[in-house]
Simulated assay, not measured.
Amino acid sequence: MIRAATPADIPAIHTFVRELAEYEKAPHEAKATPDQLHEALFGERPAAYAHIATDDTTGEPVGFALWFLNFSTWRGVHGIYLEDLYVRPTARGGGHGKALLTELARICVERGYERLEWSVLNWNAPSIAFYEALGARPQDEWTVYRLTDGALRTLGSTA
């Protein structure tokens, strides 16, 4: 049901990223190409990792989790930051999302990582309810900040 992604999964991962962007009402922001995903996941120095959820009957990919390592100076160890978790609407309710999160939690426990973190859009009530049912709690004392596009280039070009 859950397996590590392989280079052959890049087309499915790219499709899932596009579908997730549509679901999150931001398709214009999903600019990653299949080549970029391949380099990030399987290049000389992988920056991210992915797991694939497959249909129990057909073996076809129905969802994915894409993640990377972070580091907590307070805990002194790595953790996992889950960048994307997506299961196709037709496969939701089949346990794939929970199985993907369970696999990431297993990796954390096995490797001594002390955190599994992710972000969720405030309007995404079904996902919030799902995560909270698993025991996840919002970190609402923190606000996420992001620099992109012009603001990032402006700051990055100042000496």
Rank of each mutant, 00 (worst) to 15 (best):
R92D: 05
A48F: 05
R106D: 14
Y86T: 04
E39R: 07
F130V: 03
G63D: 06
G93I: 08
T90L: 13
P27A: 07
I128V: 08
G63N: 03
D56G: 15
K98T: 10
A125L: 13
E132H: 05
E117W: 04
R106V: 05
R3P: 01
W118D: 00
D9K: 01
L152Q: 09
A21E: 05
L134V: 06
G135W: 04
A91F: 03
R153E: 12
L121Y: 12
K98Y: 08
G93V: 03
I10T: 02
G112D: 12
V144N: 06
L85N: 00
D35L: 10
E114A: 14
Q139A: 14
V109D: 12
G97C: 08
L116C: 10
S72A: 07
E44P: 06
A65T: 03
V62I: 13
T57V: 15
L121C: 02
A133K: 15
Y145P: 01
Q139R: 13
G63Q: 00
G94C: 10
R146F: 07
A125I: 13
A133G: 15
E141Q: 14
A50P: 00
Y131L: 08
A136D: 03
L37I: 11
A4G: 12
A129M: 11
A99V: 04
R137K: 14
V17T: 10
G156I: 07
A4H: 14
G156D: 05
I52S: 00
T143C: 08
K25C: 11
G59E: 11
V87G: 00
D149P: 02
L155S: 01
T6D: 11
G112S: 11
W142D: 09
D56I: 09
N122F: 08
E60I: 15
E44Q: 15
A12Q: 12
P46F: 08
F71Q: 04
Y131M: 04
E44N: 10
E114W: 09
L69N: 15
E117Y: 06
L82C: 10
A40V: 05
E103Q: 13
A99P: 01
T73Y: 06
H38W: 04
D149S: 10
G150R: 13
A53M: 11
A48Y: 06
P61R: 00
T54K: 05
R115K: 14
T90S: 15
D56F: 07
A32C: 05
G112C: 09
L100S: 02
G94R: 05
L66V: 09
E103G: 03
P7K: 11
E29S: 13
L116A: 10
T58I: 12
F42S: 01
P34N: 03
H38S: 10
D56L: 13
P46Y: 12
P27S: 08
S72L: 08
E19G: 05
K25V: 12
